[in-house]
Design a protein around this nucleic acid. Structure first.
Lengths: 227, 227
DNA sequence: GCAAAAGTGTTCAATGTACACCCATGC
DNA sequence: GCATGGGTGTACATTGAACACTTTTGC
């Protein structure tokens, strides 16, 4: 009977956490300490508590791993193939998160199935547990779609940043070069940045003006970015 | 302990099924035969079987209600607020489906909690059970986004249709009027339609040429529709 | 012949894209 | 003074938006 069949489903939330570190787009992976896939790298995740909604569960998992403050968090997709998890039925609701590189320090790991937590380059990943490769690929696709409509790349940068840094973060996500003048024209026309009277302390080169994200004007414009 | 806590989660799949009937955008609702929300209208849904993936579960629910052949089916979002379902924790993975108006006849209802199945006008719905109003609103939003990138409105029409019928289906989903000449220019530039040598048998007016969807050229173009 | 929907192009505005040189600084 | 990245504008192509009249048919 259909209803009883469901009693053994388990539901987890997995979070693909991106940041930029050393000029690379990176994703946070944990090394599994137990079977199945003991020793393999995996996306951080955990079971959903009865009293929390899905977003809260994702946020909790994120905070267990990263001690992060400012985040972009979005539900990605729910993966439920019966064979995705060996020997049991686990449905996972996947999220993706962007965190600022100045919130990078890893948090205390409270999981029981995990030994190590590490940032990995998105474009050269190790072998992953379960269907986590597919989940990461899907989240990259979604992140690119988002970037074309909304300026989420701010979430990867420190509070104050230069236009070149912003452009680099777009380029890392889209995996292609953008034209400097067109990029600046577009960004400026969106009226989302606040020009500061501060400059980057550079090495032997001209200092760059710093900007910060100006929330007031967000959502006031539309249009697609660099599609 | 976190792991045991999850044992009482239940997971369902709910499917928002759209069609066009009598020149209106409609959604399929079922009247609940048991508590909670006995007597209220709800989106069709059901528990996921252990052996099926989420897409299959959605398709099964769709077929129980509509006896449909050609469909567009897409995972929408997973809703998991602890309070969305009274007295138990039910997480639902919502889908939305578009079905052709010539596949309209309702199927045999195999559910146990349902008495009636009916098409309701999307833009004037009765009071709904659970968070189903929110789910339908979310699916309309998603359907509009899809329509701007991809020609899913075909899925609501019979195999052969006129350009005016196609335009009407766009207008119903977007809830706004479109310019006839611009619409035709755009649709034609996408090279997705096959011009037939047949014409609509009309009443007292000029017959309109029939077209059908030409799958060969799908995905070969990009660009946004009527944003 | 008239009512009713089918069908058809042009103009203008906005947006995206390609492209090259001077500037300010630290050494 | 030179190496390094910072900063700037114009011309062209593509796309979206506004807009009105003629054609074909059934009655």
């Amino acid at each position: 009977m259909m209803f009883n069949e469901t009693k053994t489903h388990e539901v987890t939330v997995d979070v693909v956490i991106f940041t930029i570190q050393d000029g690379r787009l990176k994703v946070l992976l944990v090394k599994r300490a137990s079977e199945p896939f003991k020793g393999r790298w995996a996306i951080p995740g955990g079971f959903i508590r009865l009293s929390e909604n899905l977003d809260s569960a994702a946020l909790r998992i994120l905070k267990e791993k990263t001690a992060v403050q400012n985040i972009y968090l979005e539900q990605l997709y729910t993966f439920g193939d019966p064979l995705r998890y060996p020997n049991s039925r686990v449905i996972t609701c996947a999220y993706f998160a962007l965190i600022r590189s100045d919130d990078l320090k890893l948090g205390f790991d409270q999981g029981t199935q995990v030994t190590e937590v590490e940032w990995h380059k998105v474009y050269s990943l190790p072998q992953l547990a379960f269907d986590h490769k597919e989940i990461i690929e899907y989240s990259i696709k979604r992140m690119r779609e988002r970037l074309e409509i909304s300026p989420i790349a701010f979430q990867l940068l420190p509070e104050k940043f230069t236009l070149t840094e912003l452009q680099h973060s777009y380029e890392l996500i889209l995996a292609k070069k953008l034209d400097k003048r067109n990029f600046r024209k577009k960004i400026m026309s969106l009226d989302m940045l606040k020009e500061l009277d501060e400059f980057s302390k550079s090495g032997s080169k001209r200092p760059a003006r710093l900007y910060k994200f100006d929330e007031i004007n967000l959502n006031s414009k539309r249009g697609h970015f660099f599609s």
